[in-house]
Amino acid sequence: MPTTTYAHFRDVPESAWRWPSFSSAEIACRGTSAIEINTEAMDQLQSLATASEIR
């Protein structure tokens, strides 16, 4: 699975964040604020979040 890593969640470019139901801060490590983004997993989570909003 493709994973992108940033040293801090604030380093994630706004143009790269395509999951409106989530923020990079809530996905980041609580201790270091580092973030590893698995794009396939995030796409699936966004699909679930969108589907639950419709109901």
Rank of each mutant, 00 (worst) to 15 (best):
M1Q: 09
M1G: 15
P2E: 13
P2S: 11
T3G: 08
T3Y: 07
T3R: 14
T4V: 12
A7G: 00
A7R: 06
A7C: 04
H8A: 02
H8F: 06
F9N: 04
F9V: 01
F9Y: 06
D11L: 00
D11F: 00
V12A: 01
E14D: 15
E14S: 09
S15C: 09
A16K: 14
A16Y: 13
A16M: 12
R18L: 11
W19M: 12
W19T: 03
W19L: 09
S21G: 01
S21E: 02
S21Q: 03
S21L: 04
F22W: 10
F22K: 14
S23N: 02
S23I: 07
S23H: 02
A25M: 11
E26Q: 05
E26L: 04
E26A: 04
A28M: 04
A28D: 00
A28C: 03
C29R: 00
C29I: 08
R30Q: 01
R30N: 12
R30V: 15
G31K: 08
A34M: 05
A34I: 06
A34G: 01
I35A: 07
E36W: 00
I37F: 01
N38C: 07
N38Y: 13
T39H: 15
A41Q: 14
A41N: 11
A41S: 06
M42H: 04
D43W: 08
Q44E: 05
Q44R: 10
Q44K: 14
Q46D: 01
Q46Y: 05
Q46V: 07
S47F: 10
S47L: 08
L48A: 06
L48V: 05
L48M: 13
L48S: 09
A51Q: 10
S52H: 09
E53Q: 14
E53T: 15
E53I: 09
I54C: 02
I54M: 15
R55S: 01
R55W: 13
R55L: 07
